[in-house]
Design a protein around this nucleic acid. Structure first.
Lengths: 216, 216, 216, 216
DNA sequence: GATGAATGAGATTTCATTCAT
DNA sequence: AATGAATGAAATCTCATTCAT
């Protein structure tokens, strides 16, 4: 490359730099429009080295998705203490989620938008992480429901739907917080909890929303 | 094309065919990976004609986004009667939303995923529609809040956050319903209302979720 | 291309020009070292047009081999009259063969050398032509043998071997004539006939070469 | 390489391993398609060592051709005893030739096919060996001719042509024997001798094939 | 004697786009 | 209203080769 960057570093470190660069460039231009040239330049290496280490553009993208998904998942997992009550677990996880997405907006873009728009191979990778999140939320809802006297009102399929709704709300708020000045991660987290838990709480108490008569 | 397709049709109809083809191909492969060749072939016309009518790939995509956004917006608007109470308006709009996304999965993919992952020009188009949805929801929440005795508890910024959360939940459930066998649009709609309105209802009653002491 | 070449010609003619150029360039540098850039330039078109018409480098090479093989086969077939005696048929075919290889040295190089040195896909194409030649020669030898009183001495496997030997001798002489000043195609043809037919004639008469005693 | 291979061996042996690997890989993929990476890996060494010992891909290929040519030439030379009569010398040489090509198919492929299809530098190397073979055969034919009363009928140019034919026949039969099940080297050798010597023998006796009147 | 780290150059291939009719 | 012919530009990827140790 000829510039002043440090050279000859161990493979692991170079790989990390390449993934950093790839996440940034892919977040900026989108996966297909991102060029290996730009990624290599931002990483401070030549293209062949990127191919030598990461094998192909597809593999590079997959590696990005996996790394970012693992980091986000780990951040949430580390924040949750299973001994606490369900709502407190959710609160801790939600806070960690918003903190992470705020600190790693490019990674979040790659996970939330890019990984889901470029074919089944990558969608599958992203779905694996989403499934983990969904499982976590589903577990919480189910355990909360069991402690409530009205649990019979919530069939499994609906619980999964509620989990999807909660996760979608979280994703949307993360984007909103990342692109709106003056909205902090803790604020987004509080809004989500208000929105979600109060609603879920009502459901636990057997208070369903009253469907207008005569509608499916 | 030389095959047996009908030729010499009026411009408006040809344009519609081209947009149909573009939406389908873009939903399948993603915008950048979609090729004008494939779009032209699926539309049953030659490439120069596509350029003559739609001008460029960017313009074609923009036209797709606008058309799909207008159709979805219109479907929701048509279903809502402003004379009814807020929760009923929301219910009608939500039902129309899920019905539309279920019937036009390619259009929904283009709007929800493709339009948001290929640079600011298209994101802006999609955001315009999202803003319309947000405004609708925000108005509903605000009007409901005004009827409640605890409205002062909900500042404008939080109302916007709640709207983002609700819309994100709706988007997530639309994807879920479209990709999960056995989940119908009405079921997704009901799940969303349960999740959202009960929660919002609690908020209207002044029942916020109790933030654990000492946390941001 | 910008140069003074004629433009906008019908597809069939352009394809022929491309194959001409490809045969010439491949004969000169070898298949792998031949670049699509050079082929396109020699054909007077841009690279994308070569790909549009011939699809890939592999397919282009295959098309070259097929065209050259068909032309050579046809030249030999046209020269042979099955009503004549076997040695006369062979003489006519051999003359046509050397005349063709002398007039189309690049095509001959592609068939004889390039097609056989770049993987099974192309070898198979070349072998198809070689098999046709072998079949022709084998038929001649067999029919000559049947007219002779000593035909029992020649098992089928050996006849095939003799055909392979004759064809190898012809190929070698074709290369020799093409690369040696002062050797004309008719001279090479005569040399081959002397070498081959007299030897075959002896075999027909039952005069095998006397294998030294005690050797396999 | 990090695996369990033996290390630190004397240069000559390492070089032999590299040439072995190169011959195998080049025979398999062709010279241009053969990669230094694959050769180094098959040799069990790192690429820089290959360059240290063999200097460049071209030089490596040249070294392969020279080694294989020398080995084949030596095998034939060792089998021939100049004190014996010409046909016996030829028989011994031919046997050695087919035995060698059968035992070293990769080397034979490199010599016969690869060395002749990748530009003048390598063709020259292969031609040097071919010239040696031709000289040997030419000498035999000439010496046989001198012992015969009809020698004046064979001018030098035709003798060289006959030698080219014989060598081409031998090459073709070697390929045929190597790729056809059930054909052994001795069988191929016998077929060649029958084909060649009987024919040559006839020529020695003044029996030329009768060119049809009126043809060149 | 031997190798991990790194690259300049160039290969094939694809794409959005236009011209001439 | 419509298309066959054609291309400039740029993408991904591979390769022979070298440096520093």
């Amino acid at each position: 490359m000829g510039d002043g960057r440090t050279k000859r570093m161990p493979r692991a470190e170079r790989e990390r730099q390449m993934l950093d660069a790839a996440v940034e460039v892919i977040a900026r231009h989108g996966y297909t429009a991102a060029s290996m040239d730009e990624i290599a330049e931002l990483a401070g290496v030549s293209k062949p080295l990127v191919y030598l280490y990461l094998n192909s553009k597809d593999d590079l993208f997959t590696a990005c998705i996996r790394r970012e998904a693992a980091a986000l998942t780990e951040a949430v997992r580390a924040a949750v203490r299973p001994c606490l009550p369900a709502d407190r677990q959710l609160w801790d996880g939600v806070q960690a989620f918003f903190a992470y997405t705020a600190e790693h907006p490019d990674g979040w873009t790659v996970l939330h938008l890019q990984a889901r728009t470029h074919g089944p191979r990558f969608t599958a990778e992203a779905d694996a992480m989403r499934a983990e999140m969904t499982a976590f939320v589903t577990r919480l809802i189910a355990s909360a429901a069991q402690e409530s006297p009205h649990s019979r009102d919530l069939p499994a399929a609906e619980i999964e739907g509620l989990a999807m709704a909660l996760i979608g709300a979280a994703e949307s708020l993360a984007d909103w917080a990342n692109t709106t000045d003056g909205i902090t991660a803790p604020q987004a987290a509080a809004t989500l909890m208000n929105f979600a838990w109060s609603g879920l709480g009502d459901l636990m108490s057997g208070n369903r929303w009253a469907t207008p008569v005569g509608l499916a």
